[in-house]
Amino acid sequence: MEKQQDLRISVRTIPDSALRFVGFLSFFDRYGTPPMLVALSLGTSLSFAQAVQLVASYALFYAIGQPIWGVLSDRFGRLAVLRAALIGAGLGAVASIMFTDYLPLLIARSLTGFMFGALYPTLMTLLGDTRTGVERARGLSDLQIYSSLGTTLATLASGALATYANWRLVFLLPALGCVAALYSLRKAAEPEHSRSGFKFRAALRPMNLALYAIVFLEGGLLMGLLTYIVPALQESGVAIGLAGALGCAFALGVILGARLMRRLVARIGRTWLIGGGGLLLCAAFLPSAFAPSPASYTLTAFFLGAANAIMHSSMQGWATDISPDARATTVSLFVFALFAGASAATYLTADLAQNGHYGQIFGIGLALSLLLVAVATGTHALWRRMHPAS
Rank of each mutant, 00 (worst) to 15 (best):
T298Y: 08
T298C: 09
T298R: 06
T298M: 09
T298V: 03
L299E: 02
T300Y: 07
A301R: 07
A301E: 09
A301G: 14
A301D: 06
A301C: 08
A301I: 09
F302Y: 07
F302Q: 04
L304C: 01
L304W: 02
L304K: 01
L304H: 02
G305C: 10
G305M: 08
G305W: 02
A307H: 00
N308A: 03
N308C: 07
N308E: 05
A309N: 08
A309E: 04
A309G: 08
I310F: 01
I310V: 15
I310A: 00
M311Q: 15
H312C: 06
S313F: 01
S313T: 15
S313E: 04
S314L: 07
S314H: 03
S314T: 12
S314P: 07
S314Y: 02
M315N: 13
M315D: 02
Q316S: 15
Q316Y: 04
G317K: 00
G317N: 15
G317R: 01
W318M: 14
W318Q: 13
W318L: 14
A319P: 14
T320W: 11
T320S: 15
D321G: 02
D321A: 12
D321K: 00
D321T: 00
D321Q: 09
I322F: 12
I322A: 06
I322N: 03
S323P: 02
S323Q: 12
S323E: 13
P324G: 09
P324L: 09
P324H: 10
P324M: 10
P324V: 09
D325F: 01
D325Q: 13
D325W: 01
A326G: 14
R327Q: 12
R327D: 10
A328P: 07
A328D: 12
T329S: 10
T329D: 10
T330N: 08
T330Y: 06
V331R: 02
V331F: 01
L333Q: 03
L333H: 01
F334E: 14
F334A: 11
F334C: 12
V335G: 03
A337V: 10
A337Y: 03
L338I: 13
L338W: 08
L338H: 04
F339V: 01
A340N: 04
A340H: 04
G341C: 11
G341L: 06
A342F: 05
A342Y: 09
A342Q: 13
A342S: 15
S343A: 14
A344F: 10
A345C: 06
T346H: 00
T346S: 07
Y347P: 02
Y347V: 10
Y347N: 00
L348Q: 10
L348W: 12
A350Q: 05
A350K: 07
A350Y: 04
A353R: 12
A353S: 14
A353P: 14
A353L: 11
Q354A: 13
Q354M: 07
N355K: 10
N355F: 10
N355C: 03
G356V: 13
G356W: 13
H357N: 12
H357T: 01
Y358T: 04
Y358H: 06
G359R: 12
G359P: 14
G359Q: 13
G359V: 12
G359A: 13
Q360P: 00
Q360D: 11
I361L: 11
F362I: 00
F362A: 05
F362C: 05
F362G: 10
F362V: 01
F362Y: 15
F362R: 03
